[in-house]
Amino acid sequence: MSATASTRTRPLWRTLAIHLALIVTCLVTLYPVLWVVKLAVSPAEQMSASANPLPDLQAIDACAAASPHSAWPRLSCALRHFAEVTTTTTSQGTWLFGRQLLNSLVVSTVSTLIGLVLAVTAAYALSRFRFPGKQLGMQSLLVTQMFPGTLMLVSLYAILERLRLLDTLTGLVLVYATTSLPFCVWMLKGYFDTIPRELEEAATMDGASSLQTFVRVVLPLARPALAVTALFSFLNAWNEYILAATLLNDEASFTLPVALKRYMGEYTVEWGKFGAGALIVSVPVMALFFALQKHLVGGLTAGGVKG
């Protein structure tokens, strides 16, 4: 990305104004999350009735005073909920949290990969090939998003039962992969439309097969869209709990959000653990985004002069 004349000479006040605007936006953005942090680090399992989003240090101090034997009393008080959430075990004593984290990672990653492979091929066909029913295909993908999902659960359950995929992570993976497909296909198709066809023709002339063209020319150029869709499908699978809780019948095969939702009972909520769990659950997402963001903004302009 080469710097244009105007950005190079942007006046200082504008730079400052932009940073100010971004900082304010970040603060607004983070404010509700601070509440979750506050929940997570407060020693009590309760939401506090005040407008102050910062952790209640007095409560932490009080807790620390009550447990003088710990090496880092304050820290261990603040992190108590995190410890409780991450060290859950089954009645047989196996590390349940680890197992559920692994389930979540596997389910989300695999469904993202499967979803991406299916979406990428379908989107490419919809963007490039001439065949009957193309418009209809695109529209029906959209149409599938229009019916509220809650009413489809019952029949979905019956179908998975028929396919013998109930109570399996495979079934869950397939459901997640297909439910995020419509978006992924639309997104990728839209992006493929912007990639000049001549690049593919150049590859054809260079002797590339249709598959080679696709893999070595089109896909690298669609990296931003791939990053977006990957993030989307991953999150779609990562935070879902109704289906997971309904389809899976074993604690050891639950995903993390199911475990997390368990902290919200019929009458009472274990706020501390709920908050801590929510924060833990969001860490891998942030990490994934961090890893993907250079592709997100790399794409066609990759390798430009770094500004």
Binding site: A203, T204, M205, L300, G303
Partner: peptide, 21 residues
């Protein structure tokens, strides 16, 4: 198919692969 015709083509828009050196 094109690859077996032993022809090379230079496009009006060059059609260089942007992601390759």
């Amino acid at each position: 198919p094109p690859r077996d015709r032993d022809v090379a083509m230079v496009f009006q828009s060059y059609a260089l692969y942007p992601h390759m050196t």
